[in-house]
Design a protein around this nucleic acid. Structure first.
Lengths: 164, 164
DNA sequence: ATAGATGAGTTCCAAAATAGAACCTAAGAA
DNA sequence: TTCTTAGGTTCTATTTTGGAACTCATCTAT
């Protein structure tokens, strides 16, 4: 399968990854959440080549994750800002930061910490059920085919009981 | 910067992505959470080439995300199972599924839905603060340098106010 | 007026990664 | 004896990256 065909897949992970799933895109988005907006800031912070950065930013704009907003004219200069769709990726980034902090930190501890402004405390993200508000673990969740699952292929519940 | 140097970065996202951030790895992990364990199952479900699948599985094992467990001898056959470290990526996958369901679904609706077994309801993941248990949005969170941040570079709070 | 500097790219080539197919090996089945 | 299965490895052709240099319009300093 070619990467570009991935967004045809009837799986939300595949579709999401078709947009954000390559080597650089999530790091670019991390920087967006840190307030970075301009081409040369991304370039100098990331150590990414200009060619690839151009391409990734363009794709993020095409997919509505970032928007190009002019911040001056003569000459026209534009910066990249998160859209609502882009900001909705924040839980993904937070979850990655937390996982990295937990499992990939060196002896000095976490390089980045999250502060929850409303309560003022250092925090890490906790995932809870939207219905009962109980904390969710991998074993508590069953994945089922939803309305958008193609009927021409095996449903996920046709397979073994999910996880473990 | 080469991809392999990324795990040296003092950023948990970068370190996390050094392990799970390439085109195929998160899709492999999605299948792990669906109960897939064997080489040929991954291959036929994913449309990935065997060469790349071998490489990704090996890296996931090296990084302690998956473990090779023999399920028969003569001939030796091994399957790949999530470790605790791997299962800890579940919030990342759930967040990606939810984002994909919300923003990338077609007119028929979500291809995958989550059921929270303890309460029995369809759910989506909600991220709350580990301290006050209030729901967290991107604007509620400030990112600060933690103990593991290298002092030789600019701290994230030296920059503009985070997000927005 | 001329010579940089800035911001945001584009172009070019070499190196690395990927897709697709064929081949390998050990054991068991027909 | 040949076929099938599980889990790879090897090969070549195509894509994607990395790295460096070039472009272009506008400011700024000399």
């Amino acid at each position: 399968m070619r990467w570009e065909e991935l967004d045809q897949e009837p799986c939300s992970v595949a579709r999401a990854l078709a947009v954000v799933g390559d080597r650089w895109t999530l790091i670019i988005l991390r920087d967006c959440f840190l307030g970075v907006r301009r081409f040369d800031q991304f370039e100098s912070r990331l150590g990414i080549t200009r060619h690839v950065l151009t391409d990734r930013l363009k794709k993020l704009v095409e997919n509505g994750v970032l928007a190009k907003v002019p911040y001056q004219e003569k000459p026209l200069r534009e910066e990249y800002r998160l859209t609502d769709k882009g900001r909705a990726l924040h839980p993904v980034i937070m979850a990655l930061v937390h996982w990295g902090n937990t499992y990939m930190a060196d002896e000095r501890g976490a390089p980045l910490v999250h502060i929850h402004k409303p309560c003022g405390h250092q925090m890490h993200p906790v995932t809870v059920c939207s219905h009962c508000r109980e904390e969710v673990t991998a074993r508590d969740v069953r994945i089922e085919a939803g309305p958008g699952w193609k009927t021409t292929q095996t449903s996920p519940s046709d397979r073994q009981s999910t996880n473990r």
